[in-house]
Computed example of a mutant assay.
Amino acid sequence: MLKMEMLRGFATVARTGNLSDAADALGRTPSAVSMMLKQFETHLGEPLFETDRKNRLTALGTFVLEQAERELQQFDNTVRAIEGYARAAHGRVRIATVPSVASTIIPRVLSRHMPDFEQLDLEMRDMDSSSIRHELDRNRIDIGIGTIGEHVAGLDSTLLMRDAFGVICARAHPLAAERGPVTWEALEGHRLIANSLSANIAAEPARALHRGSLLTAQNVASILGMVQANIGLTILPEMTTWAAAQSGLVFRPLADKAARRELHLVKKHDATLSPAARLFETRILETVADWNRGDAVRP
């Protein structure tokens, strides 16, 4: 039975032209290499070399060398691919995050650790939290980041950060001239552009403001465009304003410290991440830890 070891040993002898150099290259003794060649020739029933000096191939030897080198190259490429995948040097990572994370945290992960990911097939999508959960349930992504919560059946969740809500208004808006946190009462009488993020704030004054709102938008760019046109004010997490980086807007924090969203990293409970996905997860956690400590430069 032919083995890859036989093909490699024969090809090494054929390329070096002698047993001694081939043995050094293979890390074996000349006698062990000679015995391997004899076993190979016995199996084939024909000699591979014209003389015992191993410096001239027979016609069979020439044919075997051509086939062996092609097979060895394929085998070595396969081994490198397998080992690269296991080391997270190769592979595919599918990640979906809410837009604010996609434009702030993820770019920092990539810029800090790009050498780790140069050979990876990275698929990055931004979407709302409910869509992220939908994609996880259907195994279409490996990692999700959103406001999904800690105790969701079938998912493992890690709290990344808490992001405070605040009021965003145009510089021409009356609230822009004031300073300090904004109370719920101070928002009464102002036109609110409601959105799905602020609609989840549990405080009753916030719910009352949303019930009275006649204008709702979901796309952050559209919301901020209307705010910049001074059509109304809106309430969004602070990170959203960093991601938007639009001039002409004022962000004022809410006085209600409980008005925060929690961003979690989530993955399927019963699925084992690939080495590449595990590495990406680790780099996200490291980057967010620096962000939370204030080590990262924020917009």
Rank of each mutant, 00 (worst) to 15 (best):
T29H: 10
T282S: 07
T272C: 05
S157E: 07
L254T: 14
N292W: 00
L57H: 13
E66D: 09
G84P: 10
A59E: 15
F117V: 05
V167Y: 03
L7Q: 05
N230K: 01
D24A: 08
Q73I: 03
R179I: 04
L273W: 03
S130Q: 10
V33Y: 06
G91R: 03
L175R: 09
P275L: 12
P253S: 08
A102S: 14
R260P: 00
T241H: 05
V266F: 02
T78F: 02
R260I: 06
L263W: 12
I148M: 13
M4R: 12
E286F: 12
L60K: 08
T158W: 05
R53L: 15
A164F: 03
V101I: 15
A164Y: 01
R140E: 08
H134K: 15
A289H: 01
L233Y: 15
P47E: 00
A296D: 09
V13R: 01
S274K: 07
A277T: 09
R211Q: 09
A88Y: 05
F63D: 15
L187S: 04
G248N: 06
A11K: 02
I141T: 08
D256N: 05
A177D: 13
Q246E: 09
M114K: 06
G144D: 02
A259H: 01
A172F: 03
G294N: 08
R53P: 02
P181A: 15
M36N: 04
D24P: 00
M161R: 07
H269A: 15
T147D: 06
A221E: 13
H190A: 02
P47D: 00
M127I: 06
A255C: 04
G84F: 02
N200Q: 14
L197M: 10
G212V: 01
A206E: 01
N77E: 15
A81N: 05
A277S: 14
I82S: 03
A153Y: 09
F49N: 11
G248H: 06
H151F: 10
G225L: 02
G212A: 04
V79A: 09
F75L: 12
I223H: 12
G189C: 05
A289F: 01
T104S: 09
G144T: 07
E71Q: 13
I145C: 11
L44G: 02
Q74G: 03
A177E: 14
A206M: 14
T51A: 08
P30S: 12
A289T: 07
I105N: 04
L155M: 08
A25K: 13
M239L: 15
M127A: 11
